[in-house]
Amino acid sequence: MKNEEKIRKYIEGELSGEELINFEKEINNSPELKKEIDSLRNVLNQFKKLKNVNADENYFTNILPRFRESTYKQKQLRIKPSFAVGSILIVLITIIVFFITTNKEDVIEDEQITLQQLDNEELKTYLNNYSQDLTTSQLTENIPEDYDSLFSSMMADELSLNGYSGDYLVDVTSNEFDNILDELSEEEIDNIYNNLIKERF
């Protein structure tokens, strides 16, 4: 057995019988060992006194009321789980709706930018596809003014009115139509009528 282990056992009263007698002989024969053991015991005795320190009992009386007070406050501050879940859902839905709305506007803006860059043929194809999902007012809002003549020619193509100006057709409003008729001679009206009959029917 190592000497340290013997010292520990001796101090803690774990040695007995012959082991104890032999170690006590060893201590008596070695002043150095005796001094070491005395020092260790002295330190232990000082720390053992810490077990019975007189302290203010009011502190201990107040431990429980303070604890109860703090837990009561925590309970009051605690948010009900259903309320917390509901609030989180509302915030999430608001964020999702916001993003969807913002992204739609971005798409329209992107399409307007691209529209400026198209040549006439590309624009024609684009308008044919794009106009299917939009009303006339939405469509014209998104078409730049420069493309009015192109738009008119597309309408003329649609009506198979070869040789007529699309611009003229687009510009005519219902109020102006009566004025135009008044200005035409009988011969001109017959001519238009015959042409229309010939082209469309």
Binding site: Q46, K49, L50, V53, N54, A55, D56
Partner: peptide, 14 residues
């Protein structure tokens, strides 16, 4: 919470 001065000194030292 240790009110006695000497005890307090001793406890603090240890």
């Amino acid at each position: 919470i240790i009110k006695d001065f000497e005890t307090k000194e001793e406890v603090n030292r240890l």
